[in-house]
Design a protein around this nucleic acid. Structure first.
Lengths: 138, 138
DNA sequence: ATATAAATGAAAAAGCTTCTCATTTACACC
DNA sequence: GGTGTAAATGAGAAGCTTTTTCATTTATAT
């Protein structure tokens, strides 16, 4: 991911944008909130305003560079877009997210949208529960 | 739904609670935000504070009388719990929600949670799109 | 170099939801 | 039927995430 991607998206190549991209690419967290990104930038020594982080992430979303996930009403998290659609398992205890892909479900969703006369634009599936790790460390 | 349900839930039978229940039962809207309920109460001549509406809805949720749906990060909507799990089709144009039940998807979700070692507590599936009606009135 | 449209930072504002705390009310008990 | 007490309520303040405003800075086309 580099300057070219930003130009293609009609976005000027600026330091905040490059740094946000860098954070998203290098963080161990695959899902980051705006706050997470903001803090990571600070740790990196970049004083980029939180408002800018929100703006940049929203623009990246518009450009298809990242996806925004809205976990259960609260705050949003962002993940780098890699072209592969996937759904999420959310651990209600440790808040970690695991991903999965299931073709059966994907197909059923398309069928249901069609049956109901919906022109499907997107979908989101979350399975909430307690992950293997948290079950042990009750 | 009546006083008994409130008592069973360990909640005192108060006017605000009875009225909120009444609104949820009689409104044509199956999904109502706290604000919707609040306004409906006002129209009904009941001056019940918004904070109380939130409190009551949250308690009802805890008591299993209503479910809370969090649509895409924004505000929450509540629906009377009727025991039947269902998923949602959300029209991104008119914000209306349709419901559906699909056993194939339900089963796959259970399987996936099991495969991943998750103890599933809940799940939510939203199909976003443009409903039949909004497609016509573009 | 320079003009200009876009981007940024900081603070304010917005929108939903929860909290605080003084006052009121439901209900168990006498 | 009174009465004490814990619970519920109302009104406003506060909390959180996110967006907006606007003056200043910056990227980029010329």
């Amino acid at each position: 991911m580099e300057s070219q991607d930003l130009r293609k998206a009609g976005l000027k190549v600026t330091l905040p944008r490059l740094k946000v991209l860098e954070i998203l690419e290098t963080s161990d967290l695959r899902h980051m909130s705006a706050e997470d990104v903001y803090k990571a930038l600070l740790e990196m020594g970049e004083e980029i305003g939180l408002a800018t982080v929100y703006r940049v992430l929203t623009q990246f979303e518009g450009a298809g560079l990242v996806s925004r996930l809205s976990i259960d009403g609260g705050h949003a998290v962002f993940e780098l877009e890699d072209g592969s659609h996937h759904d999420h398992l959310f651990c209600v205890r440790c808040n970690r997210i695991e991903e999965f892909i299931d073709d059966v479900i994907e197909q059923r969703q398309r069928d249901i949208a069609a049956e109901k006369g919906f022109e499907m634009t997107d979908h989101s599936l979350y399975i909430y529960g307690i992950c293997r790790h948290c079950q042990k460390t009750k």
